[in-house]
Design a protein around this nucleic acid. Structure first.
Lengths: 142, 142
DNA sequence: ATACATGCAAAATGTTTGCATGGCA
DNA sequence: TGCCATGCAAACATTTTGCATGTAT
């Protein structure tokens, strides 16, 4: 799924922004570009290692911070768990978390987005960022 | 603001539920009943100490867990920060966080609540709990 | 060449826990 | 009295950082 192509695009973007593309960063970009789930730092480290990358966990953390600053990835912080990360090239969405399986589903709803903006505006604020998470359970058929 | 009365109500409720009301728990109940903000464990500990309670931080944590299990307080987990707590006797609401001042404002919007339920339902889920946080900045007048 | 990135180990942070002791019901 | 709660210190889990060394540009 074009992982390599996407990774190269991102490398160029980083270099243009004056960020060095090291062996470790290149490896992590590929792990991220080929992941369509929401891994945490330890999981990303494991995947990089599995790919033979040779990256320390400290560097994984530093790289995630850097990539977030560059807008390449987004940080997700669910209840109590370690932070998870996802590629940022997708369009904005919120998350539904199945409390029984831990599965994460993405969704957006324009009406909700609009209502949020209205609420903030009425109070004299503008929204910098928001977080909407629905913790759900599968409905039992009977 | 009826702190003492409220604290006694809560003590009775705890005893009825078979939870012992110790000196430490009684002190923390009073701190919680008299707080209308969203303090974290360390802050609650500090307030209890300031009131001359003599409670260890470990006990604060254990008590918060207990009170949450009893439905007396709710746990709030904002981005990265330590968990904060609030009295649960209030009606449901979401939070607006001013990213510049850290100030937290409560709000609810029935239309948003309804839309959330609809979204979950369409996917075959029922909502167990949700979290909606708007991270905002005050709009500058010009 | 040089500024920046890395690895390692240690530190920081927030929270939990084992165990001996204390105290509510 | 008996079971549960407490305090203390140690353990934990996640993340950050100081410092010597390595490396992309």
């Amino acid at each position: 799924m074009m992982t390599e192509e996407r990774a190269r695009q991102l490398e160029d973007a980083l270099r243009n922004a004056g960020v060095r593309v090291t062996r470790q960063r290149a490896a992590l970009l590929r792990v991220i570009a080929s992941s369509d789930d929401h891994p945490d730092a330890a999981e990303l480290h494991a995947r990089a290692e599995a790919a033979g990358a040779g990256v320390s966990l400290a560097t994984v953390y530093r790289t995630l911070t850097t990539l977030q600053a560059q807008g390449v990835i987004d940080k997700l912080e669910f209840r109590g768990e370690p932070a998870r990360w996802e590629a940022a090239d997708q369009s904005h969405h919120d998350h539904i978390i199945d409390v029984e399986t831990g599965e994460v589903i993405e969704f957006t709803n324009q009406r909700i987005e609009r209502l949020q903006a209205e609420i903030a505006q009425e109070l004299g604020y503008e929204i910098v960022h928001h977080r909407l998470e629905l913790y759900v359970r599968r409905v039992k058929e009977k």
